[in-house]
Design a protein around this nucleic acid. Sequence first.
DNA 1: CGCTCCCTTGAATGAGTTCAAGGCGCGTGG
DNA 2: CCACGCGCCTTGAACTCATTCAAGGGAGCG
Lengths: 245, 245
Amino acid sequence: MESVFHKVDCLHCRLSALCLPYGLRPDEISRLENIVQRKRPIKADDYLYRQEDQCLSLFAVKSGSFRSFISNADGNEQTVGFYLPGELMGLDSFKNGRFHCSVVALETSTVCELPLSRLNELSNKIPNLQAQLLRIVGTQIVSDHDKIVLLGNRSATEKMATFLLMLSQRYSALGFSSTEFNLTMHRHDIANFLGLTIETVSRQLSVLSKKGVITVKQRGVQINNLDSLKTIVEPCLPNSFKFVS
Amino acid sequence: MESVFHKVDCLHCRLSALCLPYGLRPDEISRLENIVQRKRPIKADDYLYRQEDQCLSLFAVKSGSFRSFISNADGNEQTVGFYLPGELMGLDSFKNGRFHCSVVALETSTVCELPLSRLNELSNKIPNLQAQLLRIVGTQIVSDHDKIVLLGNRSATEKMATFLLMLSQRYSALGFSSTEFNLTMHRHDIANFLGLTIETVSRQLSVLSKKGVITVKQRGVQINNLDSLKTIVEPCLPNSFKFVS
DNA sequence: CGCTCCCTTGAATGAGTTCAAGGCGCGTGG
DNA sequence: CCACGCGCCTTGAACTCATTCAAGGGAGCG
């Protein structure tokens, strides 16, 4: 029988090393596949879910990118993070079963849906899955802490350079170029995420551009001198942090 | 046989509703108790653990308070959070088995140590424990996101008011006064946590003091007008947020 | 008593914001 | 195919809030 959902194949998914199947044996992966649902693509600016919605599933990014944000009483938003392929969205719902962020697609994107009821069931049976889930949760916490450090005491220049380098590294981990990629989010989103204004972001990009460190063409960014960026960022990084060279 | 460790009694611990035993049956709690170790008190400024240390145990605050922070390459620190009784420290180690923050005591404090090996073992056997661990992890993520929102686009006044209100609520949840408590951390720590300078923190406290909203005596703070604080903070809060009145 | 540490207060400075205008790319419609 | 208009981004100039620099107060302790 034809399903409205596409066939799910975690075993051969190039993202599996970054995603939930990591560390699982092939037979365990196939059990995981059985509970995963692939939905139709989500268009740019469409919501994946909204703050306060009941969480029935976690979502892994299959392709594209997403932005998560928290809306405040005064109508403002604070962007909390950007999600790239292989990353898991909805972990904040573990607190009380509701999402604490809204998530929208930045471009046409697809997700793998993981129904919580079945995921819980399965992770009780597969210790490796349980372990990987906790690893992912720990990764989320560490990355949130890095954001706190970034927002805490850093200049606009440092914030901008860090932002570019983080994207560079994440794309690189996905097998994409670390020196040439698109900023799928708007300048507004970058600014909001970094605790800056859109004008400041624009100016910082200009400065880096004029120095020849990067080349900006609309949404496309090319990093001409990774080392310059690293030099800007280095003093702000945790002692533990090591750039992949 | 006398142990160097004190007798652990989660069942009658007044913190159990906030801590790991929450949601467990009495028999499950007693199994948890068996793996918990109480160590001798930690003095102010002593490290509980250091960034990069291998994580063999999680720690729950039994009494006192702690500060967690990340050290950067340039020798600066960024305070990431403050821990009060009932809260679990070390969750960031789930990423790769190492702590990503350092934690020091702000005053003489005690902790309950939860050896990871035995905790993992036990949580595989007790689904309720597993569930509560995920709830706590989710709570940590949500609270980190709240910090990101706070640091992102808020004025010094809003940051300061939010900080005081958050403490007020956390103390209140612990059964302490919500209007009178000590700031166990230094001004420097508050400033660093909020992404401000120590002078700005001092000035903000003075302003609130002169308005009569709070009374500050050294480390002691008395909130004279909770509503004024809430009025300052309200526009910055997630839509979902409701103050306990 | 004198020292130190921590905090407060004042005045000058400056990084980033705000306000304002203009440019560029792109889709739509003439 | 070009003109127009819109959304998004860039740039400039004035301003502002927090920082920086500097000095002083006060609690705690030897």
